[in-house]
């Protein structure tokens, strides 16, 4: 195995072990979307009428509609949690080990991203499994096609977290990230309501939702769950991934970024 793959394997395994040993984090990662799905969606179902929009070919219940958005939410939370752990790691010093390895720094950061994405995919499948137990199911091919798509969307939100962890001086606590990153990204997207609904309320909010990379990530997942690839959403998600990754690598460049600004 090449040195690159050895490092990747070690980083992914370690991240997985850490996640499994933190049972509370695993349960929280599952309970959060399930509450949305089984409580919020049930209550909201009557309030929101949905027309037939692609990829759906018939009327669907609200529970069915929000599943892709909740998959995206799982990845968003996971990406931000990974970025927080990076800030914590850097302060505690173990990030230094990573940064002083003779392997290229971009590769080590990509390994971290892949590790975080792998964890988020485990969580999404666990969530989809529980949703299926409650009768909320997708076509079989959707469960397969969504896998590569979750890699792309997971990397995109993970890269955003990585960029934030390198550029923002201090992510004091998770509440700050919730207020300023997760909630705006989640609510200003197509996760909870189709964009045409938003357009009826406010043109401006609709436009913000339409440029939000998270919207495209969610749409990518939504179409994939029905065995289709939404090329426009794929393109926007990849573009956002490239931009966020570029920012993250810039932030972790030893000549720039946070490390230089000694606290």
């Amino acid at each position: 195995m090449s040195p690159y793959m050895i490092a990747l394997q070690a980083i992914v395994l370690r991240e997985a072990q850490r996640f499994i040993s933190q049972r509370g984090r695993f349960i929280a990662a599952l309970v959060r979307p399930l509450v949305w799905l089984l409580v919020f969606a049930a209550g909201f179902r009557a309030a929101l009428g949905l027309s037939i929009i692609p990829p759906y070919q018939t009327y669907i219940t609200y529970e069915i509609y929000i599943v892709p958005g909740l998959c995206g939410m799982i990845q968003l939370f996971n990406g931000m949690q990974s970025s927080l752990s990076l800030v914590y790691d850097r302060e505690m010093g173990s990030m230094r080990l990573l940064l002083t390895s003779p392997l290229p720094r971009w590769w080590l950061l990509v390994c971290k991203l892949l590790a975080g994405t792998a964890i988020s995919i485990l969580q999404v499948y666990a969530f989809l499994g529980i949703a299926a137990l409650f009768g909320i199911t997708m076509p079989l091919q959707g469960y397969l096609l969504v896998l590569p798509v979750l890699v792309v969307s997971g990397l995109m939100v993970g890269a955003l977290g990585l960029a934030l962890s390198s550029i923002i001086r201090q992510l004091e606590n998770f509440a700050g990230v919730m207020n300023f990153v997760i909630f705006p990204m989640f609510f200003l997207s197509s996760a909870l309501y189709p964009l045409w609904k938003m357009a009826e309320s406010s043109r401006l909010l609709y436009q913000i939702c339409a440029v939000n990379p998270f919207t495209h990530g969610v749409e990518l997942i939504r179409f994939a769950l029905y065995g289709q690839i939404n090329l426009a959403a794929l393109g926007w998600t990849c573009l956002a991934l490239a931009v966020f990754l570029g920012l993250a690598l810039w932030g972790y460049d030893p000549a720039r970024g946070l490390i230089r600004r000694k606290t």
Binding site: A10, I11, R14, S94, R96, L97
Partner: peptide
């Protein structure tokens, strides 16, 4: 390098800490 701040994973064994580090160096 031995940094001033501890950089070991407290929950792993001594050997596992060392093998993780070796993998980061591509060994």
């Amino acid at each position: 390098v031995v940094f001033q701040q501890p950089t070991l994973d407290m929950d792993l064994s001594v050997r596992r800490n060392l093998s993780y580090f070796a993998a980061l160096h591509g060994l």
